[in-house]
Amino acid sequence: MSHADSPSSLIRIEVDGAAYPVPAGITVIQAMWRIGRSMIHGVGCLGGVCGACPITYRLPDQLASKTGLACQTAVREGMAITFLPSDTSKKAIALLPKEAPTQKTLFQYYPETRRCTACRACSSVCPQEIDVMGGVRAAINGELSNVAEKFTSCVMCGLCAAVCEVQIKPHRVGMYARRLTGAFYPKEAAGLLNRIEEVRAGKYESAWSQLLSADEAALSNYCGSEEAAQKLAI
């Protein structure tokens, strides 16, 4: 076995100051269940993508606290765990503009973004290892698609906003930059637009009327043979 995993051995963790024995090799959420807590807050998809379960924890041999997602963090000997509320940052009512965005569009809703002191705290807490500060700097430079790319894997846990000393909401900036980039994508999806036109123009109407009036045997035949499907002129 190249990956240590001995579920039988017990380790000690600390939750809200109290110590508990739990099996090694389980996640923090699983440890909460083991110590008898039925979780309602601080739990979500259990797959690392919903951002409901941010935690901060300290290990015995380390000075600095770390952050993570409880469903994605394995318990360690002596780990002291505190659950944080999921994203409590203030959300601007940031609608999409009518015209293509400019460098200033983001700042309209998130003006504090420009105050970034490049302290890197946001990047250091991100459970997704996003280059958060790089994203904020790119936003300041008006590089929207670059911001969008950097925040692709953002789970909106809000840890970055919680540690920002100048109240930037990097995940919300990333979100808005992504929406602006998507809605004002520089090139048309020609195939999609063409297909929408074809549907509107009734190109498939005769196929639909044949299919929807077919009995199960006839439908089966259309499904089973490419030749029969071709006859529908699709």
Binding site: R178, G182, A183, Y185, A189
Partner: peptide, 9 residues
Amino acid sequence: MDIGVLFDR
């Protein structure tokens, strides 16, 4: 796409 979903292109 119009509300800002960014599919791979």
